[in-house]
Amino acid sequence: MIQTSLQSSTPLLADPSVGRGRRLLWPAVSAAGATGFVLVAHLLDPNQPGNYPTCPWLLLTGTFCPGCGTLRATHALSNGDVLEALHRNPLAVATFVVLVLGFARWTRRQWRGERRMTAAPAWLLYGLFWVIMAFWVLRNVPGWTWLSPE
């Protein structure tokens, strides 16, 4: 018996009975949540004392976590100051770029009705983990103030 390849060059389509509006529900909800986050970070300046609580990790250990400075980076980006955002948390800025690109890809796939993609490969997830761990350690090295959010 001869086997044929099950893969085709055309994208696999989702259930055609599901309309575009329903397929775009979760991208719309995600966009609304991200917009709310940016709006709050823009309106309530994290550089002003008392607007937000202190990072629990910083409060307990006196060291910076990988997320320290993300609110200030978001505030700076919402004001158009990319250099200030990079100074506050370069990893957060890079993450925002990847998230926007991933969101655009996801929304396009939903618009077209293509099936869901599989999860990221393990090597990518492990690599991301080690990048975060390295950033965490390096931003707390004495004298490396260029990675600290202050």
Rank of each mutant, 00 (worst) to 15 (best):
L138M: 13
P16E: 11
P16L: 04
N140M: 09
V131W: 03
L43T: 10
S78I: 03
P149H: 14
H42G: 12
A104F: 10
W130Y: 12
S9F: 07
F37R: 04
E84H: 03
A14R: 01
P11K: 00
L43M: 08
V137P: 03
A28K: 00
R20G: 10
D81M: 00
T63L: 12
V131T: 09
L71Q: 15
Q48K: 08
A34T: 05
G113Q: 03
F129C: 08
V97N: 06
T10E: 14
G80W: 02
P46C: 03
W146S: 02
V93T: 14
E84Q: 14
F135S: 04
A85V: 14
G102A: 12
H87K: 11
V29D: 07
P11M: 00
L77H: 01
N47R: 14
G67Y: 06
I2E: 10
G62W: 02
L58V: 00
V97Q: 08
P46W: 02
Y126S: 13
G36A: 13
A34N: 04
R22D: 11
R112A: 13
R112K: 05
S30I: 10
D81C: 01
L59I: 01
F103C: 12
R72M: 10
L43G: 11
Q7E: 13
L13T: 14
P46Y: 02
M133W: 06
V18M: 08
G19W: 02
L86K: 00
G21K: 02
M117I: 08
V38R: 02
R112Y: 07
L59R: 11
N51H: 11
R20N: 09
T10I: 02
V98C: 11
